[in-house]
Design a protein around this nucleic acid. Sequence first.
DNA 1: CCAATTCCTACTTTTTTAATATGAATTATG
DNA 2: CATAATTCATATTAAAAAAGTAGGAATTGG
Lengths: 137, 137
Amino acid sequence: MKLSTKGRYGLRGLVDIAAYGEDEIVSLAQTARRQKLSLNYLEQVFGMLRRGGIVIGVKGVNGGFKLACDMDEITVRDVLEVLEGEFSIVDRNEEDRQDSVQAALETLLWDEIDRKVNSFLEERTLGSLVREYRRNI
Amino acid sequence: MKLSTKGRYGLRGLVDIAAYGEDEIVSLAQTARRQKLSLNYLEQVFGMLRRGGIVIGVKGVNGGFKLACDMDEITVRDVLEVLEGEFSIVDRNEEDRQDSVQAALETLLWDEIDRKVNSFLEERTLGSLVREYRRNI
DNA sequence: CCAATTCCTACTTTTTTAATATGAATTATG
DNA sequence: CATAATTCATATTAAAAAAGTAGGAATTGG
C-alpha cells in the first residue's frame, strides 16, 4: 500500500525542474545528480510524463525538459495519474459488488478513501510544492 | 498503491463472522465458502488476526473464530495494522528528510495523506461495517 | 476412536517493481 | 562536418513482494 518509486522520483524530478523557473529547460542529468537518482531510470519516468502531457522534452545539446504548462495548473493528482494510474485503494469489479459484504466495504471504506485521497491530491499543485521547497532551501 | 488481499480478505472474513452475532463461534470453512476464498489462505490471515488480538480461535469440533471484543471497539485501522502494517503512503528514512525537495513532499503530501487516511480508518469500526452489510442483505 | 477444526510453517508460483543496458535520433557548437 | 550532449525507445535482468498450495501436527466434541 505504498507509492512506487515512479511516483516519488517523478515528483522529485518535477519539483527540481520547476524550481528553475517557468520555461527554463533543465537536463535530466543535472536533476538526477542533484536528486541522487539513476539517470537511466529517471529518463523512463520522464518519458511517461512527456507522453502524459506533463512535460515537454527538448532534444540535443542544451536540451532537457520543462513543464508543459504553468506549475500552478498541474496537480499532484495529474502527475500520479500518469505515473501510477488513477488512485484507487482496491481493484473494483462488477462481480465483487454483487456480494453484500464487499458492497458494504466499498460503500463505507474504499469509495470514501478514494474520494478523500483524490480530492486532496487535486488540491495540491506542483506550484505549492515548489514554494514549500524554496521556503526550506 | 493497492491494499493487498490480506487486508481485503481479512475484513470480509471478519464481517462475515461478526454478522453471526457477539460470541457466536463460526468456522472458517463456512466463511471461506460463503466468501468464495481459499480456506487455507484464509487460515493464514486469521492466524495473523488471532496473534494480533482481533479474534479468538477455538479448536476442535464445532470450533472456529469469534471476535476478541465488541465489534464497535475494533476499528478498521486496528485490523489493517495487523494485516498490512501501519498505513503509510511512503517509507520514511532520516536521510531523505535532509533533502529539501523530499522534505517538501513529506510536509505537503505524505504526512497529510497518512494523517487523513489513518484518522478515517480509525472512525470506521467493524460494527459499522456489519450494520451496513445487514442493511443490504 | 474419529472427524472437524485450528494451528504451523515450508514451499512454489506469479506478479510487480526497480533497475540496467544498449543504442538510435536529434541538435547546438566549435 | 564532427562531436558531444542530450532525449527517446525498448529489451533484458534482478530482486522483492504477493498470493496461494501443501501437508501435517494439535486439539476437542461426540
